[in-house]
């Protein structure tokens, strides 16, 4: 009798487990499908994509085109140039953001000054405002500064237009202030007793302790530049970043679109993000869960 009920609960648990895992596997497949479709298509030849209706969901070894589409996608647009520019923009804006937010976060977390709480409240309120509201005036500002004109711009002016508005960030400032705030006051007081200056304390103690947060900021900021589309298109149309190059070089003109080439290009742009994610998952997830809690 007792044995029987135990067996029944065990069977129930197994059925439940099977159900849960099938559910998870089902949605995992749903999440992976676009990546699979991208990779699969990028390995098919132009003819295979164009002639197979319906398309095959797998690819035979002899039909595999491992390099062809990537090579043609790479040469269809000056990708090296786009990538180099994107990396440069990301590097400049990330370095700028790191320094400005470290300084400001230090002031908000450690120093006592007039109007501190009010100023901080004003700053975090701007996080509620949709970015489009800033973009309009920033577009005017950038053209007033002469970085972008209807007559064109130099590469240097384009770089200024692409980086200057992104040399700081209220969200990262907020994020870093939280990290600085968690450092115990006793440490600061001990340093004061030893005669350590604020400047030295910031760089020797606070920055090293908060370095995981700083790494998170670096990664998120660089990934943001990699996926930037709207602002570069507005102010640096002649100097596209990778994402702009991707959309424009392979536009559909209802003619013969080379889908395998298009998907190869999409993968070239996606792959660096995936690699960064897989290696630095810990830091990225920390940033995301924080932004979820921030309220």
């Amino acid at each position: 009798m007792e044995n029987n009920t135990m067996n029944r609960t065990r069977i129930r648990t197994i059925i439940f487990k099977v159900f849960v895992y099938s559910f998870l596997v089902g949605f995992a497949i749903f999440v992976l499908i676009p990546f699979y479709w991208m990779v699969l298509t990028s390995f098919k030849s132009f003819e295979q994509v164009r002639t197979e209706v319906p398309p095959s969901l797998f690819i035979g070894f002899k039909d595999l085109r491992l390099i062809e589409n990537y090579a043609s996608a790479w040469t269809a647009a000056p990708y090296w140039e786009y990538m180099l520019r994107t990396v440069t923009v990301a590097a400049i804006s990330t370095v700028g953001t790191i320094f400005t937010t470290i300084f400001a976060a230090f002031a908000f977390a450690r120093l006592n000054f007039k109007g501190r709480d009010l100023l901080f409240l004003a700053l975090i309120s701007t996080m509620m405002i949709p970015g489009e509201m800033f973009v309009i005036t920033n577009y005017i500002t950038v053209s007033n500064l002469g970085w972008y004109t209807p007559l064109g711009q130099t590469q240097f002016e384009a770089m200024l237009a692409l980086t200057m508005p992104f040399m700081t960030s209220v969200f990262y400032l907020f994020f870093l202030r939280q990290a600085f705030k968690q450092i115990p006051d006793e440490l600061y007081l001990a340093a004061k007793v030893d005669g350590t200056s604020d400047w030295k304390y910031l760089w020797k103690i606070m920055v090293p302790i908060a370095s995981p947060t700083i790494i998170t900021i670096i990664i998120l900021n660089a990934m943001g530049t990699w996926s930037a589309y709207i602002w570069p298109k507005l102010v640096a149309a002649e100097y596209p970043l990778v994402t702009n190059g991707l959309r424009e070089a392979y536009q559909d003109f209802f003619g013969m679109v080379n889908y395998s080439q298009q998907m190869a290009a999409a993968l070239i742009v996606t792959l660096p993000l995936l690699i960064v994610f897989l290696f630095l998952k810990k830091y990225i997830m920390r940033g995301v869960s924080r932004s979820g809690i921030k309220g």
Partner: peptide
Amino acid sequence: QTIFFLPYVTNAIAIGMAFAFIFHADYGL
């Protein structure tokens, strides 16, 4: 967890192009 998190780090434009091709009338999945 890693798989479910992937969409967060990808490029909206690139994945949009992949989705458009998934929904392609003749060649789509």
